[in-house]
Simulated assay, not measured.
Amino acid sequence: MSNPNWKRVVIKVGSALISPNQQGCSSHYLLSIAQFIVRCRANGTQVVLVSSGSVAAGAHLFPEQEKSDIAVKKAMAAAGQTEMIATWDRLFDFPSAQMLLTHADLRDRERYVSIRETIFSLLDNNILPIVNENDTVTTDKLKVGDNDNLSAMVASASEADALIICSDIDGLYDKNPHEHDDATLLKTVDHIDESIYAMAGGAVKGGVGTGGMRTKIEAAEKAVSHGIDTYIINGFTELSFNMLLNGENPGTHFKPHAKPMQENVHWMRHTSNAQGEVIVEGDFDASLDSNADQLTSSEIVDVKGEFSVGDTILVRKEDGTKLVKAKSNYSSCLLNFIANQENEEFANEFEEKTGPIISDQHIANLEKE
């Protein structure tokens, strides 16, 4: 690394740093992170903070409650969120702002653009955005699930140069360093593939967070595809942040793609969820990522799920091969009707009048997956 010349950075802080003992918020580990943010801003770098910890911070207020109960967890999040934001706010001498998001906010294009505009407006006015998932209202259908992936989505939305993900170890090792003394730290990852995921294992058992090393790699994959330098570092040591500011790599550096995805394509592929599927003939080989008109009702063999005009859908072959995620210009009901017409001339005339089935402005190619 050379001396960092970041215009904008997203830093993700987990529950274990916010509330190590689940006895409310502690500033013990947050002081060095806050100082890093202060120094970044002094160097002219804008910062967005993605902070987990509301559930862990509020846990001590429900000593007699069953912590696994969903309603109790939501209440813990509601109570803990105010304490967490207050703790962060005390560490800064500049204003901060709370942004609570669900995946429904991110996967809806109009709301996603609104989130971008809010972040940019806050940064332009020297206000620190503090982002967290809105655990008080999320359901399985609406939640991102972990703040590692949320931080990657936020990094993409905010057009960040770098994403810094804090962990409890120095970075990605070739095997679990808690179990193997000969584990080796990977200082640089040029390409994320299955061999990299194999090193991650699962979530940490007994931890206060919802993610593990695997979700951090998932986040890194999202970020680097948008051209964002991504680092997994040890957030418990001040040295990590000093090294970053000195242009040194304290953990694992995931190098960004040389040709990043365009913003709208990245959003379609990594943020928007498919609400249904369109199954096409097995020999269909059109390049949908460059020509939406290639997909017509004559190629469709089945429509799965219920979706509306403007929803994201997955287009795949009968053998399961994924082709693209795309914005649908038809509802599932109408698409079923058109695809089931025996009169092909009628279907062709209908499509000529109403336009292509999917929008060529919002297509993310998946064929290489």
Rank of each mutant, 00 (worst) to 15 (best):
L30N: 02
V204Q: 09
G58E: 02
C40W: 08
N3E: 12
N21D: 13
R107V: 12
E218P: 15
K205R: 14
L91V: 09
K143V: 07
D193V: 12
M84I: 06
L106H: 08
S359G: 00
S19Y: 00
G310M: 10
S328V: 01
K255N: 08
S27T: 14
F36V: 05
N147L: 05
G202K: 14
T210H: 06
S156Y: 03
I127C: 09
N246S: 08
A34G: 10
R111Q: 13
Q294M: 15
F254M: 11
D108F: 08
A292L: 10
F254N: 04
L334Q: 04
N336L: 06
I338C: 01
A339T: 06
G212D: 01
E133W: 13
I37L: 01
I300T: 10
T82N: 10
N343T: 00
A258S: 14
E194D: 15
S158F: 12
N147T: 04
V38F: 08
I279V: 12
K322T: 05
L91S: 03
F94H: 04
E179C: 08
T252L: 06
P129A: 11
G276M: 01
V280F: 02
S308Q: 15
L366W: 02
V72S: 11
V137D: 01
Y112D: 09
H266S: 12
V265P: 11
R316H: 04
G209I: 00
R214E: 11
I127F: 03
T118R: 13
N242Q: 15
N149F: 03
K175L: 05
M268Q: 07
G58M: 05
T184Q: 15
T82A: 06
N291Q: 10
G211H: 03
R41H: 05
N147P: 06
N125M: 14
D140N: 15
A152F: 08
S328Q: 11
M243D: 11
H103T: 04
F284W: 02
F284R: 00
T188K: 15
S19M: 00
G171K: 07
T139Y: 04
M153P: 10
M84Y: 03
V47R: 06
N340E: 07
D293V: 14
V315S: 07
R111N: 14
F36C: 06
